[in-house]
């Protein structure tokens, strides 16, 4: 705005429009070419058939989607009765349970961090962030060592004589995947919750208590509403990547569990079935769009700033 006063200087840098072009332009072009265009292309491909030579047949059709869902309409059970839809539902269940787990684990810690400060805070946050920034792959791998009939968990309990046979819960499978995902995405939840709890004026809490509100009532009427943006953004940032998880179910499912990301990956890597893969990805994309649209009803885009 101030720049527009220098009317005598016509250099690009001096005009507001020029400055905007210089600052926002490059990233717009870059993301346009490497994010928007690929996603648009993917949407397009999802409506095209692919021939034997892996070329696209430019003729719109719903065949790819027809392969994913069963015959019939969404309210008929045959519609849901395909591997893809079952895998999708399983992925939803896993992602939702993971989100709930993350929330229940992160909330007490976030609350504590918000009320504490200084040195303790810095150390704890470092201890939380370090595993978080350690390679995702490494964290998934570390759980690979823990689970299994002879994994560290079962072996230790056996050694201590607490159990006589390996426990099934510590075998690979859905529980192991949920633990792995919770471990992987827990810090997203923690940091989001912390960010919103940190803004809370805790004298409000004291005031409510002094006025005689019970602890659960304070939690419900004061803390939770204030923490809502954090809860929502934290849940999004746990739910979305959990839904599309690939490595964790791959390592911790011992081949018996098929989440949506694995299914799409296998189709792409073994058959280069890009039509099928694109159409499958649309279900993830659509879920994200819906989830964010819902979230925006409660929180502002700025508060979803992110992780």
């Amino acid at each position: 705005m101030a720049a527009s006063t220098d009317t005598n200087n016509r250099s690009l840098l001096r005009t507001a429009r020029g400055k905007l072009a210089l600052t926002a332009g490059p990233s717009t072009i870059w993301l346009g070419l490497l994010l928007l265009a690929p996603l648009t292309f993917m949407v397009t491909v999802s409506f095209m058939n692919i021939n034997e030579a892996y070329n696209i047949v430019w003729q719109p059709s719903l065949d790819n989607y027809g392969q994913l869902t069963g015959p019939g309409l969404p309210w008929e059970s045959s519609f849901w009765n395909t591997a893809f839809m079952e895998s999708l539902l399983l992925s939803y269940v896993i992602a939702i349970v993971t989100t709930v787990m993350c929330f229940s684990l992160a909330f007490p810690l976030a609350y504590l961090l918000a009320r504490k400060g200084g040195r303790v805070f810095k150390i704890v946050i470092f201890l939380v962030l370090l595993p978080f920034f350690t390679m995702y792959l490494v964290r998934a791998y570390s759980w690979l060592l823990m689970f299994g009939p002879n994994g560290v968990l079962n072996a230790t309990l056996l050694k201590l004589g607490m159990i006589s046979e390996p426990l099934a819960v510590f075998n690979f499978g859905v529980p192991a995947i949920i633990v792995g995902l919770t471990h992987a995405y827990f810090p997203y939840m923690l940091l989001s919750l912390y960010a919103s709890l940190d803004g809370i004026d805790f004298s409000l809490v004291e005031a409510a208590r002094d006025l005689g509100a019970s602890r659960p009532a304070v939690l419900k009427d004061v803390i939770l509403p204030l923490a809502l943006p954090g809860i929502i953004s934290g849940s999004l940032f746990v739910f979305v990547p959990s839904l599309g998880a690939f490595i964790t179910p791959r390592f911790l499912g011992q081949g018996k569990v098929l989440m949506i990301g694995q299914l799409i990956e296998e189709r792409i890597n073994s058959l280069y079935a890009i039509g099928y893969g694109s159409a499958g990805s649309m279900f993830i994309v659509l879920t994200i769009v819906v989830a964010f649209a819902l979230a925006f009803r409660y929180v502002d885009v700025d508060e979803l700033g992110g992780v």
């Binding site: 926002a24 990233s27 717009t28 993301l31 490497l34 994010l35 928007l36 265009a37 690929p38 996603l39 292309f41 993917m42 491909v45 979305v240 990547p241 839904l243 599309g244 690939f246 990301g261 799409i264 990956e265 792409i268 890009i274 893969g277 694109s278 990805s281 993830i284 994309v285 994200i288 964010f292 885009v301 700025d302 979803l304 700033g305 992110g306 992780v307």
Partner: peptide, 23 residues
């Protein structure tokens, strides 16, 4: 613009990876 800018972080890796591969 801002939402667009944080999108790469939100799109799950499988989707972004496949979209770019096909592209």
């Amino acid at each position: 613009f801002r939402t667009f800018g944080i999108l790469p972080m939100i799109v799950p890796g499988v989707v972004l990876g496949i979209a770019l591969l096909i592209y």
